[in-house]
């Protein structure tokens, strides 16, 4: 034992199948040993535009590319903004869409190597210890929020993902409450990319994250919103949130309220209805509704 808290092998469920290596920014930080290198799979890189205006983004496309690409920024501004604000420039330069969607969670206990549901253990040390950065929606045995900001943005865009041998699936189907893992792909299953439907005419979108420090910090809560406003009323609303549940979530109650003509703050407050906070995450209720309120205001202002 070299590190004080290394009571189980960090890095997740032990599996005989070697993991894929994309950008490596999550995998290598978890110090796993061997991998299957995806980086020569150049066919999985880049953004392809379909005639109907939809986009296919290869799994190996870097996050920097998502943030930079002019056409993507115009068509899917909330996705581009999410990409631009997450992590740091060096990370974004190599981290990939696929790796972001399939990264492991950032619970301090899990990362420090405590035995827990996520690595073959049968407990949640955060729940028994310090759960301040935990979930506020859902009440599964594991309280680690899902880490992927891009998954949350893709959810707001009703995107699908393509998995080798399984075709296209809704992005939401990658995730579940299973406390032993952060995504539902089987070991060895390869994510090929994501596909976003064509943007709706007149839609505006925004992304907001709540953090203590200004940058390079994991969000306490984050949200992406798409709105189409016509004749003074909202005719399309898609709102997703991250940092709050075991999976990225859509907030249908907020969407419904907006479509029914509720003012922004009131609609945002609806997000609270599905919250089931832990004693230590009660603040996240206000933070979530605040983040949603801000993202809606920002989308409308843009």
């Amino acid at each position: 034992m070299t590190e004080p808290t290394r009571v189980a092998a960090a890095g997740g469920t032990v599996s005989a199948v070697l993991p894929f290596l994309a950008g490596g920014t999550d995998l290598i930080a978890r110090a796993a040993g061997e991998w299957i290198d995806l980086r020569d799979r150049t066919e999985l890189t880049g953004i392809a535009w379909q005639p109907d205006g939809s986009a296919r983004i290869g799994a190996l496309t870097t996050i920097a590319e998502l943030a930079r690409d002019q056409r993507l920024r115009a068509a899917y501004p909330a996705l581009a903004a999410t990409a631009a604000e997450l992590a740091t420039p060096q990370i974004r330069a190599v981290a990939t869409l696929g790796g972001n969607l399939l990264q492991r969670n950032r619970c301090a206990y899990f990362r420090a190597g405590f035995a827990c549901h996520q690595n073959g253990g049968a407990c949640c040390p955060a729940r028994e210890g310090i759960a301040r950065y935990g979930t506020v929606i859902g009440s599964g045995p594991c309280v680690a929020p899902h880490p992927s900001s891009l998954a949350m943005a893709l959810l707001a865009y009703d995107a699908t993902v393509e998995v080798e041998g399984r075709g296209h699936l809704p992005v939401a189907s990658l995730y579940g409450e299973d406390p032993t893992r952060d995504h539902l792909l089987a070991p060895g299953e390869l994510l090929l990319g994501a596909e976003l439907p064509p943007p709706v005419a007149g839609e505006r979108a925004a992304y907001v994250r709540a953090t203590g420090r200004v940058q390079a910090e994991w969000p306490l809560a984050e949200a992406a919103a798409r709105l189409v406003v016509a004749g003074g009323s909202v005719v399309l609303a898609a709102v997703a949130a991250g940092g709050v549940a075991r999976t990225p979530v859509r907030l249908p109650e907020v969407e419904t309220a907006l479509l029914a003509g509720a003012p922004i703050a009131e609609a945002a407050a609806r997000a609270a209805t599905r919250c089931a906070p832990l004693p230590e995450t009660r603040y996240k209720v206000a933070l979530l509704t605040g983040t949603v309120e801000h993202v809606l205001a920002k989308a409308i202002a843009d």
Partner: peptide, 18 residues
């Protein structure tokens, strides 16, 4: 942060220790 159950420090990287 020190875990109240095990006594181990849990802020062991520069994301958790800010």
């Amino acid at each position: 942060l020190v875990d109240p159950v095990s006594g181990a420090v849990i802020t062991t990287n520069l994301e958790d220790y800010r």
